[in-house]
Design a protein around this nucleic acid. Structure first.
Length: 476
DNA sequence: ATGTTC
């Protein structure tokens, strides 16, 4: 359909030149290791498709962890003007899939392997994991769910599941405004109302980690990250609730696009003008799922703190377990870029505001907020900060390692020996390695390469590298 | 990602 011509624009940056119906160019950020990977699937074609949508501004961006998705590639950023479109497929199935990181005041080397195992077993007693699981908190009723989709983390913290300071350490303070449950289908309501406080499956996890290296001691100190410290990373999203909202609106935005005379390059990019009834409805429903996901991670944080308190035999407060930050990886948000208000769709991309930007929480104004990048199970994760130079990506960074094998390919191609070797002794909760093969480190790109690609050209700054000790994955 | 082939 398009030539997919990539022109090198200096180190690690390639321009996807405008052709066909594209309204803007694309920037794709890859190094020598990642460049061949980006051509193995339909990522570039999907990026070009997004660049053809009405109202798209400046450029579409492909992060180093880019891979083929539904509509927009995962690792894609698209910003649209106030008179442009909003697209459900450009946010993704798992709305506000995201990550939060807790810092303890415990030195990881003090913990023996049997103790770590007891810790993850106790966390699993609190947090249901796996596809289709329902929440355990009897007090979290349908009524609370209805409030939470409008108030996000706030509705959870005010009931005692968290600390007031957690809110200021969450993107959007844990609540995206404009949510309206009236825009959500009965089906989505039914699936979501019972899933608060559940981890889910796929790439979601709770991981115990140790700070291996700190690159920026000043930022590290502010974040509570010093070498040897035990951290907890929580990666989950809006579960069946966000999934159903994406499915519902990907369908209903098809006739809407026709109605407004929008030529769709791909059904996966079904969209409507952001300022239309259909577009506003999607935004209102998406915001419900965003708030659900913030609340979900908040409730799980509470459960993790309880589990630590149980196993250490003290109050969780004595162990630190402070929230460092919580970031969204799949979201569309109104932001000001280049002096105008645009709707930034980030799908598998992390907001990365620069130091001094007023959108940072007060506590992180000087450094820029922490940018949390989970690696695959068994491999390192990173904490970064944004830079002023990243204005060209609408202040966005990559969101993880990014897949290199599909789930089915990974199940078929990775042997038990390869799996165990790649895990390097990291504890995991599953009794059967086969349940985890689709998430094996070998199914993902090299996280160090992905992170270095943006850091090398000053689009991010590395703060710390974290190594996994024990991981809880969703399983049946 | 997902009541994973509603």
């Amino acid at each position: 359909m398009y030539g997919m011509e990539l022109v090198r624009e200096g180190q690690n940056r390639y321009r996807l030149k405008r052709s066909g119906n594209m309204r803007v160019d694309g920037f794709v950020y890859v190094n020598e290791y990642l460049l061949p990977l980006v051509r193995r699937d339909k990522s570039l074609e999907q990026l070009a498709n997004a660049a053809s949508l009405p109202g798209v501004v400046e450029r579409v961006c492909g992060m180093p962890d880019i891979h083929e998705g539904f509509g927009l590639p995962i690792g894609g950023v698209m910003a649209t003007a106030a008179d442009g479109v909003i697209s459900a497929g450009a946010v993704g199935m798992d709305i506000n899939c995201g990550v939060r990181l807790l810092a303890t005041n415990i030195m990881a080397k003090e913990l023996k392997i049997p103790f770590l195992r007891r810790l993850i077993e106790r966390i699993e007693e609190y947090v249901p994991t796996g596809v289709g699981k329902k929440g355990k908190h009897k007090a979290i009723t349908g009524e609370i769910f209805e409030e939470v989709v409008h108030t996000g983390s706030r509705g959870i913290v005010k009931r005692g599941y968290g600390r007031p300071e957690d809110l200021g350490r969450t993107e959007e303070e844990g609540c995206l405004s404009g949510a309206d449950l009236g825009a959500v289908s009965g089906e989505a309501y039914k699936r979501g109302a019972v899933q608060l406080g559940t981890l889910g499956g796929g790439n979601h996890f709770i991981e115990l980690q140790v700070v291996e290296e700190v690159y920026d001691p000043a930022a590290g100190k502010l974040f509570g990250l010093e070498p040897g410290v035990l951290t907890v990373m929580i990666h989950t999203g809006s579960r069946g609730f966000g999934h159903q909202i994406c499915v519902d609106y990907s369908k209903s935005l098809l006739p809407a696009a026709r109605k407004y005379g929008i030529e769709l390059p791909d059904r996966g990019l079904a969209c409507a003008p952001a300022d239309s009834k259909e577009g506003r409805d999607y935004y209102a429903a998406m915001a419900c799922a965003v708030n659900f996901a913030f609340a979900n991670r908040q409730l799980i944080t509470h459960d993790v703190r309880c589990a630590f308190g149980d196993i250490f035999g003290c109050s969780p407060e004595e162990l630190g377990l402070d929230l460092i930050y919580d970031v969204a990886h799949n979201i569309a948000k109104w932001e000001v870029h280049g002096g105008r208000k645009v709707l930034v769709h980030r799908k598998g991309a992390t907001r990365a505001l620069p130091p001094g930007h007023p959108g940072n929480p007060a506590v992180y104004r000087r450094t820029g907020h922490p940018v949390l990048i989970p690696g695959s199970m068994g491999t390192a994760s990173y904490v970064l900060t944004g830079t002023g130079a990243a204005a060209e990506t609408f202040y966005s960074a990559n969101h993880g390692a990014g897949r290199t094998l599909s789930r089915t390919a990974a199940m078929k191609e990775i042997s038990r020996e390869q799996f165990e070797a790649s895990m390097g002794g990291v504890l995991y909760n599953s009794r059967n390695y086969k349940e985890l093969l689709d998430e094996a480190p070998g199914a993902y790109k090299d996280i160090d390469q992905v992170v270095e690609t943006l850091a090398a050209i000053n689009l991010t700054r590395k703060v710390a590298r974290l190594l996994p000790l024990a991981v809880i994955k969703g399983k049946d």
